[in-house]
Simulated scan of single mutants.
Amino acid sequence: MLLNVIERGPETPDAPHLPPIILLHGLFGRARNLGFVQRRLAATHRTFAMDLRNHGASPHGPMSYEAMADDVRETLAHYTSEPAIVLGHSMGGKTAMMLALRHPEQVRALIVADIAPAEGGFTRMDVPPDLANLHFPAELDRKGAETLLRPLIPNEAVRQMMVQNMTLGENPGWAIGLPDIMHSLPAIMDWPTLPAGTVYNGPTLFLKGELSPYIQPHNFAGMRALFPHYTLETIGSAGHWVHADAPLRFAQLVEDFVSKHSALNAAH
């Protein structure tokens, strides 16, 4: 499946040739959610922020981390044959990990934002299971959409995120593949059992929000088994949405890691 992509890159024709960077959003997000860090990285790198399947403007279909990783691989191959540095947040982080584990030759280095390779995550999304059956009026503006969702989604941040997934105006509705997402939610919250010996030996950075519960000490052994060369950085005073809660610190850690592993002679 070819995914919808926001591509940004250096504006100067004599920019040094550096590895491409892929950016993958979390559940109910979209490519532009990582726009702040993408714009910074695009000053030196060709970057591809992707809408994962059922999200943004990408096609819809059943979801699994294997399928989503294959989507990313196929989409990257549409633009370049080079291995990429892959950054993923939350569900996008699990997708990035799966890509690195299944196709390590395609991943030069890996950044995983606030999720572990384990069951868990997204428990605080607080999205009702029957949301896909929401009855829409004949016409809807943004204020009306918030009013429509408020009784169902009390969390304002989650409600705002879901409003961005609506088509507003006349004949409003869900712009995303919400039935597929809700049907696949158990698989999205889980982490698949991998064949014995599966490992990604490339450089890996986990970024944890200090206030987030999604990377805990009991996850470290599993992280080390799959990603033996990982390092972990904790971003102070940040929750699960680390890139939004502490954008400058998040961008600094990402840029430092990218710079370290962008040299053409860097170890894969």
Rank of each mutant, 00 (worst) to 15 (best):
T80G: 06
L152R: 15
L134W: 06
D141C: 12
E119W: 07
P128R: 05
I115L: 06
E105G: 12
S58A: 13
T75A: 09
P117R: 01
L76G: 10
T75Y: 06
N155G: 00
M166G: 01
L52T: 02
P62C: 05
G93M: 02
S81C: 05
G92C: 10
N165S: 07
V158E: 00
R142C: 00
T80N: 10
Q164Y: 00
R73K: 14
E139I: 02
M97H: 04
M162V: 03
S58M: 09
M97P: 09
M166S: 05
A77F: 02
M161G: 03
P129Q: 14
E74L: 14
G61F: 05
G88V: 04
A113Y: 00
A77V: 01
P137C: 09
M50T: 04
A145D: 07
N54D: 12
G92V: 02
K143G: 10
Q164L: 05
P137D: 07
F122C: 08
L131F: 07
Q106Y: 02
G120Q: 01
E105A: 15
P62G: 10
P151V: 04
E74V: 11
V127W: 04
A49P: 13
E74T: 15
T123V: 06
L76K: 02
V127I: 15
L87F: 15
A69V: 03
L87T: 02
F48T: 05
P128D: 12
G56E: 11
F136G: 09
M63G: 01
G93F: 02
P129H: 14
I115M: 15
Y65K: 03
M63P: 03
R159K: 12
A67S: 12
Q164F: 00
L134G: 03
E139D: 09
A145Y: 09
Q160I: 00
A109T: 13
A49F: 09
E146L: 15
Q106M: 13
A145W: 06
L131N: 10
P59V: 10
A145V: 07
N133R: 14
T123I: 05
Y79E: 06
L152K: 14
A84T: 04
A113N: 13
N165E: 07
F136H: 07
H103G: 00
G121R: 01
S64T: 15
E156Q: 12
R142L: 03
P151W: 03
I111C: 14
R142S: 10
V72Q: 07
T80V: 06
Q160V: 01
G144R: 08
G144H: 09
R73T: 03
M125R: 03
F136A: 11
A157M: 09
L110S: 11
P117C: 10
H55R: 04
M63L: 14
A77G: 13
M166C: 01
M97C: 11
P154I: 00
F122H: 14
P62M: 04
M50H: 06
A100C: 08
M91N: 13
N155L: 12
L87C: 14
M63H: 04
G88H: 01
N155V: 14
R73L: 15
E139V: 11
Q164R: 14
G56T: 06
A118Q: 12
L140M: 08
V127L: 08
P128A: 10
N165V: 00
S90P: 12
A96F: 10
P117H: 04
V158P: 00
P62I: 06
M161R: 08
